[in-house]
């Protein structure tokens, strides 16, 4: 099959999303504590077992998927929307706007995403939305740079020049000939960063800087049950597999999409 990674990635991601959304209908309440069933192994009543408070692991994994997909989705949206907007407008605007955006992007690119997240958590305290805010603060920079470069270069492209010479306004020529290509690339680059983003969010949550109890989050789940993993190995296997599958799904999807719009190229930014 042509471009297998695109298909496998997309189906994996769809499966994860379906589980995340459908779980509340099928599985117990993820926050329900049941001391009679603490550290229960996987079985009929608890599909993947329970943690030390007797909470259903499968339900908590699905709830964690909602947390992760929601926060990652928010950062992704910001990086696509702001990146495309800032990049495109600065490429078309005058020199001053161009320079300003370029300098801001320079700074945003020079600030490591997780370091910013740690700083924000230090200033205004831990929390998932604080992390989303902090991650978004730099996530738009690579997409903006890409959109900027693409649109700027496209101004001199033969098809665009021809359209402009034919009397179509610059804005319309751009919208018709350049924007679709720029958007596709921005979406792919934003998606290329999502795998790392999932890992970072999980790591920061593991450190207690992300989702706060009782919200279920994969990294947090492992942190809370790390002393039980020898007695109850499913407590490490399940959340780790969840992170692994989510990262794999997104990476496959992004790699496949990159290959789809720009076959054989290795020159794409990866962050």
């Amino acid at each position: 099959m042509r471009n297998r990674s695109l298909h496998v990635g997309a189906w994996l991601l769809v499966a994860l999303a379906v589980i995340a959304v459908a779980a509340p209908l099928l599985l117990p309440d993820p926050d329900r504590v049941d001391y009679t069933a603490k550290l229960a192994p996987p079985g009929a009543t608890h599909l993947l077992g329970t943690d030390r408070l007797g909470r259903d692991l499968a339900a908590r994994l699905a709830a964690g998927a909602r947390t992760t997909l929601g926060s990652v989705g928010a950062v992704w949206l910001v990086s696509v929307a702001i990146g495309l907007l800032a990049g495109t407008l600065s490429a078309l605007a005058g020199r001053l706007a161009h320079e300003t955006v370029a300098r801001v992007v320079d700074v945003a690119l020079a600030l490591p995403q997780t370091v910013v997240a740690l700083a924000v958590a230090g200033a205004i305290g831990p929390g998932m939305w604080q992390l989303v805010f902090a991650m978004s603060a730099t996530a738009w920079a690579p997409t903006a740079r890409l959109a900027h470069t693409y649109v700027h270069a496209a101004r001199e492209r033969p098809d665009v020049l021809a359209a402009r010479m034919a009397g179509i306004g610059t804005v319309r020529a751009m919208a018709a000939h350049v924007l679709p290509g720029a958007s596709a690339r921005v979406v792919v680059v934003a998606t290329l960063g999502v795998g790392q983003l999932i890992l970072s969010l999980a790591a920061l949550s593991f450190l207690g800087l992300g989702a706060q109890p009782p919200t279920a989050e994969w990294g947090r789940m492992l942190a809370d049950s790390r002393h039980d993993v020898i007695a109850a190995p499913w407590l490490i296997i399940a959340p780790t597999t969840a992170v692994f599958l989510a990262v794999t799904a997104v990476s496959l999807l992004a790699d496949g999409a990159r290959e789809h719009i720009d076959p054989g190229s290795r020159s794409w930014p990866r962050f």
Partner: peptide, 23 residues
């Protein structure tokens, strides 16, 4: 390479600590 870059640092750390060091 693909698997290694999708594995969370903290999970590897917990495995090492709980199973190798403590276990």
């Amino acid at each position: 390479v693909f698997g290694g870059s999708a594995l969370p640092v903290f999970a590897v750390g917990v495995v090492l600590l709980e199973f190798v060091v403590v276990g």
